[in-house]
């Protein structure tokens, strides 16, 4: 990997030790969070007890859509704009997350197994700015 990579927003995710989202979970009520808030927001939670938790690994595609046209700012993208797939993924760790999908819409299906990855979303100043994305798991790709 020769190009310089930098997160599009620092502190939200990491590639070290496998792609993961830097969130939190409340020890009292079990609610998962991404990004991490300063305290548990569950109104039914008796006492906020947040601890850092990394979310990653596999999940199931709850639904998806395509950005057929370039979204307005503050989104950033490489010119010329190429439509991309947006997934809503239920991670096995109990977190429902939105993110861009690696791959084409024709290969997607609701219920497919996916994995969290970190990949570029745009380039600027000779650097690749990355975000979290989801990729169809090997088995899902073969069956698509």
């Amino acid at each position: 990997m020769s190009e310089l990579r930098e997160p599009c927003v620092p502190g939200l995710f990491t590639e070290e030790g496998g792609a993961s989202l830097l969130g939190a979970r409340c020890r009292s009520c079990g609610t998962p969070y991404f990004p991490a808030p300063s305290h548990c927001r569950n109104p039914s939670c008796a006492e906020s007890a947040l601890e850092p938790q990394a979310f990653g690994g596999g999940g199931t595609l709850w639904s998806y859509s395509v950005a057929n046209f370039a979204p307005p700012a503050p989104h950033r993208f490489d010119e010329p704009f190429r439509p991309y797939v947006i997934g809503v993924v239920d991670l096995d760790q109990g977190l429902r997350v939105v993110g861009q999908m690696v791959g084409e819409a024709a290969d997607m299906r609701v219920g497919a197994r996916v994995d969290l990855v970190v990949a570029p979303i745009y380039h600027e100043d000779g650097k690749a700015f990355t975000s979290w994305k989801f990729e169809l798991s090997r088995g899902s790709r073969e069956h698509a």
């Binding site: 927003v9 709850w62 950033r76 609701v110 979303i121 979290w132």
Partner: peptide
């Protein structure tokens, strides 16, 4: 970066129509 809506648009890029489209796709399912 403290605004979740900013993060959603910068890190993902999910404008209103794409939010509705994911719901429509799920309904189709």
């Amino acid at each position: 970066a403290a605004d979740p809506e900013f993060l959603r648009q910068r890190c993902v890029g999910m404008p209103g129509p794409s939010f509705w489209a994911t719901l429509a796709r799920r309904r189709m399912h």
